[in-house]
Design a protein around this nucleic acid. Structure first.
Lengths: 350, 350
DNA sequence: CCAGTTACAGTAACCGGTTACATTATTTCA
DNA sequence: TGAAATAATGTAACCGGTTACTGTAACTGG
């Protein structure tokens, strides 16, 4: 060996993490046995089990998630795909989902996916989750179809599946209750110039609420006036801006009520109305949707629709876990009931 | 070969997913080259790159996350550990965090960890994340120390590190502003029997707000009265129940103001007061903390403290990513400024 | 008493990437 | 112009688990 010869050191990666082989060695068993103990999927003798338990706590062994995932081809992760989370609506939804996910000892990863950012695959999908909860328009129809073809477990939330794709869907009753809400404004409070603040375009809740709104107008012989329709996105700041702008520039257009689309937007609407000196509900009725936690405490208390959002989250998550067991829910779309909540902002005195 | 010989079929796992080797083969290169192309960490000739791009889209290739994680020893996931998420407070926090995480093209996994559930390792940790954002008392001091010893990247949110552990921490100014808030009630509105609705015990914000409260009383020569302290948890339903109970059973104890601890609790407080016929702010002043989205719209509009919660989330996340690059923030604890927001519920007329 | 089960455990291939090391062709530059 | 540096790629060992396949001993029933 020539002088100056340099040993090629095996610079072992300083992965300090304890591995299953170390556990196996220390306990005097094979790695397979350790694995079986961890997963409880094969009988292990009592004393080996006890020994492993000791060794594992002593070594502070925690199985490496990625290694398990790679070997077992399952991630024990469910993904929640949203388009935005600028809305208090997500608190109850997330609560429902998280509770179920935790119960099943899965992890929950949250991602927002702007429909604009194409050409980039969504951050979560089959490569890093076992299934997806897809909120509203969190994913395009095409992507949905593509995942469906690959038989990837998914449940839609507040959105029904496109075409005839068999994807379970959990949402709430929008149209009938919106009809009743608007009907209430007309019949009880004599409102005739009811403004509609839309939600995001192409959003289903938004669509059905608008449909119910129109149906109520028609049922009462009130002509639909395009000028009374504003475009919002279920977001309080947008709502404020849009209405503020409207009032400032379209003074000649009168209105005596606002259907805000959802309660978050209602906050913005109330603020704009207040700042412009409209008295609610004397001059203008305001009604929302969702009955969020704060809605009963607004000025005035908000007439709205109670939607079981936490339950939506819970059921959607449960259905996803059922899909993991190849159990398809009875009904393709689970439509949860909604309920009229009459408070002060429509003009009622309760 | 004897008759009846049975071939041991290589029942290939029907893992339909496209692998890097398929891409490599189809593009006529080695897997190493594909890997290099994906990670852009070594020069690739133009035409090979083009070819790979085509093949990858054609095959709809998406790298298997677990395999990458296992091989590279990094997960590209940050974990957010909460104790609960029953609070609208999390919406802005989550927003701030998510924005940063997405910018870095990482994934965000959310877990709630009940401090009670010991003997079970937290659902997220070094085995499945590159770093943790730990909210409040989402993890015990011991666990914190243990992770710190292993040099695991963490940033604390709304909590300062125990002992002398060098863990970056991002939170808001609580004590001084609470002092000012209570001082306002006393000096401006002549309140003397100010009730304190505590947050969760051992929660730092709660502690400092209480400290500020006591300091203000003392500075004004008002004796601290233990009877005026109620235990809440920053949650509207608890707040409602606790105050409701108090009013029902302790009629003889008078009070003329309530410091609700946070705005979410303020909702419950307002409801309870309203139901029992107290007029706010004429008879009782109510003040909160956080200035959540709805606070300006409560009945009456809530006097509170504006806390830059979204910024807290953003900065905490940024600091975590800095830690990934071995950059420790200048200050151990980043204390974000808070601001008094005077509205109607304290008695002011604005 | 023996064939057929069952309980328990070990060996080693495999999951789908990353990367150290080796190799060849092409530049760069003294 | 020849040595050294650089560019572009390939080979194969690994990452840390899971599990198919085997093997042995104890048990069971006829």
């Amino acid at each position: 060996m020539p002088i100056g010869y340099v040993l090629t050191k095996n610079m072992t990666k300083k992965s300090h993490s304890v591995t299953i082989r170390q556990v196996a060695q220390k306990a005097g068993v094979s790695v397979a046995t350790v694995s079986r103990y961890i997963n409880q999927n094969a009988p292990i003798s009592k004393d080996v089990a006890d020994r492993l338990k000791m060794v594992m706590t002593e070594l502070r062994y925690v199985p490496h998630a990625a290694a398990r995932q790679l070997a077992s081809q399952k991630t024990r992760v469910v993904g929640l795909l949203l388009n935005t989370l600028h809305n208090d609506f997500f608190v109850p939804l997330l609560n429902g989902i998280e509770a179920v996910v935790r119960k099943h000892e899965y992890n929950l990863v949250i991602a927002t996916y702007l429909l604009g950012s194409r050409d980039m695959p969504p951050p979560i999908g089959p490569h890093n989750t076992d299934g997806l909860l897809i909120f509203s328009d969190g994913l395009s129809d095409d992507d949905l179809a593509s995942l469906h073809d690959r038989n990837f477990p998914m449940v839609l939330v507040h959105r029904t599946p496109p075409d005839s794709l068999k994807i379970p869907s959990v949402t709430v009753e929008n149209k009938r209750i919106s009809f009743e809400l608007i009907n209430h404004l007309i019949k009880v409070h004599g409102r005739k110039r009811i403004m509609l603040l839309r939600g995001p375009i192409h959003q289903e809740d938004s669509y059905w609420r608008e449909t119910g709104y129109k149906a109520a107008l028609e049922a009462n012989g009130i002509p639909f006036d395009e000028k009374l329709v504003l475009n919002g996105d279920f977001e309080r700041h947008t709502a404020y801006n849009v209405l503020h702008e409207f009032i400032a520039t379209e003074k000649q257009i009168s209105f005596d009520a606002v259907f805000t689309g959802d309660d978050d937007a209602a906050i913005g609407v109330l603020k704009a109305l207040h700042e412009h000196g409209y008295r609610v509900p004397e001059e203008v009725s305001v009604v929302g949707f969702d009955d969020l936690g704060f809605s009963a405490f607004l000025t005035p208390p908000l007439t709205t629709v109670s939607a079981p959002t936490e339950t939506v989250g819970r059921i959607a998550a449960e259905q996803l876990f059922s899909l993991f067991d190849k159990q398809y829910p009875e009904d393709d779309v689970t439509l949860l009931p909604t309920e009229l909540i009459i408070r002060r902002s429509c003009g009622c005195t309760s």
